[in-house]
Design a protein around this nucleic acid. Structure first.
Lengths: 126, 126
DNA sequence: ATGATAATGATAATGATTATCAATATTATA
DNA sequence: TATAATATTGATAATCATTATCATTATCAT
């Protein structure tokens, strides 16, 4: 995959962030950096980066897609107070996939878990 | 909660369905039954039914909200082939919430799991 | 250089959902 | 029961996230 100038800017920004950004946040930040870029280009490059496996994508229940620098299979916590998504570092529950395959007779590729609740004010673990 | 005529029609329809309907599907079906109803009324009542706890709501990765007659804490399977959502009847993994609380120090209200994969053609378990 | 090809970005289009608001239905009260 | 007060409806406009369009611009290969 050939990365373009704009694609690189977007990728760099995600890597330098806490790991979770929406397309809109990326637009605002790159504009702040006085880079000329349009929202269509951002979506186009995010899709390319995602399908090429450079970044991850999660669906936020309110904000649409969140782009995530953490590519590993991992879970998320949605803090209702700050309305932000945080990574949860517990091991992937492989066994659930096998159980569901047994029940349905189908093939499970993966599963995603979103925890929802309230995080403590003090600790702001991204 | 006072249920209106339209609210009742919507609720009845969901109960009589396989359990998973979009607002648009509800509109089409009620129109078929020659009931005069608008999409705004459907969303309004679905929101009311949901917040009052009469029905459940899940986010479909492509189609937006799915309204679900099954109110219990349960998981879902997204079949990439049919693009439909199915209930998965395995027990709620309470222990995951406790683990996450321990890690984050926050309060977990609940979690949702969506399994993704391909279901067998033969069995079409809703 | 120069022509071919690909990427950009402004903007229009789309799809799901919510807001607006005049018309209609329901409820409460005299 | 009439009628005033209040709530709900439904058509439609607005919104929000995302994708499509397409003329312009940048990049690449000769």
């Amino acid at each position: 995959m050939k990365i373009t100038k704009q694609g690189q800017q977007i990728y760099d920004l995600i890597l330098s962030s806490d790991g979770h950004m929406t397309a809109e946040e990326i637009l605002i930040e790159l504009k702040h950096q006085n880079l000329k870029i349009g929202i269509a280009t951002i979506y186009r490059n995010l899709n390319a980066l995602f399908t090429a496996g450079y970044i991850n994508r999660v669906r936020h229940p309110e904000l649409g897609y969140i782009y995530d620098k953490n590519k590993s299979d991992h879970y998320h916590f949605y803090d209702k107070k700050t309305k932000k998504i945080y990574d949860i570092d517990i091991e992937y529950q492989e066994k659930l996939d096998r159980i569901v395959e047994k029940i349905t007779g189908g093939k499970v590729e993966s599963h995603s878990i979103i925890f929802e609740g309230i995080l403590n004010d003090k600790k702001n673990n991204d």
